[in-house]
Design a protein around this nucleic acid. Structure first.
Lengths: 243, 243
DNA sequence: CAGTGGTCTAGACCACGTA
DNA sequence: ACGTGGTCTAGACCACTGT
């Protein structure tokens, strides 16, 4: 590594360079989900920096939930088991009672030309091919939402060959293509249920629905997934914490 | 201070104790908004810990936006000028175009007995007295939302004596009562416009509105404000970033 | 130039989990 | 008992800001 070659101008802190190097190891598969990283001391030796500098990089990554550290055990690449990533990026809660595991039912899955909104969200050329999945999701017996997921066919090749699309797609992206979702941007609105919404969700046309437009980004800040959800919020709410 | 008296059990890191002490200085008014804190070295001497420990406490507080640090200048208590705190906790954006400064119009302001929802949100006894403010807010010429703000009359005494309620109430809480809002929890739903909503917002009854229930907490994590907003989201959206 | 926060280092010791 | 991350210290040097 050309660490420490930093000139006074265009200065870039060492720990950020270490952070980038470690991120590289994650994207190129040196450490798989669930794996334990070498100790701080070992990493420091390997990268030719001090242990404190490695620590600062690891702390930054921990703050972003890219890594998990446990005192006395070690530093780990997070497992994407159901129930962790599921709830991490899933902000819908029942107004009362236990949070149940969402259940999904795929309605359709097909290849299509990217619409303007999809191309803009995924940073694709208009007309590029995308996978488009329609599905319903339930909270217990109760239907919760209807959503369309759009994916770049180039970035996730062979997506359509899958026999089934699992409930937790982010785990799938990771296991199948090594794509780790770390950041999500959502835009929320209240909209009236369209005829199609009414049919699928079993509600009246015009019923107020929470519309969530989501763009999911991977470790390299590349947009990977675009998703539009229409949610019934009579007994559920979306939680947002600001600080 | 009884720093360093920590026994092996019930262990509490030094930098957290420092953090608490500094937070105390903020709540008891030693440092007002806009003030510059002593340098890390001075604080370290004053508190009898090392500069690195002070730094760790300051970093934690900076991460929460309780303090602001600027290289070469110093560490400051954030000013609550319009446009900073305003936008910090305000997640509504226009779908296109510039973000304008919200304008508020107070409809009513009165003392009342806390309803169940207010008492629960503000952690008050049912029937305690609260200030209840109704107002409208505009994005440019366009009406954006209608909201009711509920405040514990005990915690913000004399609120009703104010000649006018400013647009930026969080600045007011800080300047008048030394109450700094640092954390906000919101619950979002889509609801149909009630007759009252329709009248105030100039929309049809039944129009889908984004309902935002907010609880605002101060430095001590005490709930200070409960607010319910009903927003028109035809040309606006609520932005939420998860990571 | 002086003073501030920001980075980096090196080393000591502590708390935690596991064997 | 051992290895891990977590805390704490002390000191050097760098980058940024204002005088």
């Amino acid at each position: 590594m050309d660490f420490k070659a930093a000139a006074p101008v265009g200065f870039r802190p060492l720990y950020l360079q270490v952070r980038e190097e470690l991120t590289r190891y994650l994207t190129n598969g040196r450490w798989q989900p669930g794996a334990m990283l070498p100790s701080e001391q070992e990493l420091a030796r390997e990268l030719g920096v001090s242990q404190g500098t490695v620590r600062k990089a690891l702390d930054a990554m921990t703050a972003e939930s890219i890594l998990v550290r446990r005192q006395g055990r070690g530093t780990f690449v997070p497992e994407l088991e159901e129930g962790r990533i599921m709830f991490k990026f899933f902000r819908l809660y029942p107004d009362k009672g236990e949070r149940l595991f969402p259940v999904s039912k795929v309605l359709s899955s097909q290849l299509a030309r990217a619409a303007a909104a999809e191309a803009a969200a995924l940073d694709l050329k208009k007309g590029a091919t995308v996978w488009r999945i329609n599905r319903l999701r339930y909270h217990g017996e109760r239907i919760m939402l209807r959503e369309t997921i759009s994916l770049s066919a180039d970035r996730l090749p062979g997506f359509g060959d899958l026999a089934a699309i699992p409930n937790n797609v982010y785990r799938l992206y990771s296991e199948r293509w090594g794509v780790t979702i770390v950041k999500i941007a959502e835009k929320l609105k209240a909209v009236a249920a369209s005829p199609a919404d009414a049919t699928e969700l079993g509600c009246k046309e015009g019923m107020p629905l929470l519309r969530i437009e989501r763009i999911a980004y991977d470790l390299n800040k590349t947009p990977v997934e675009f998703r539009v959800s229409h949610c019934l919020t009579e007994t559920m709410h979306y939680a947002s914490d600001l600080s």
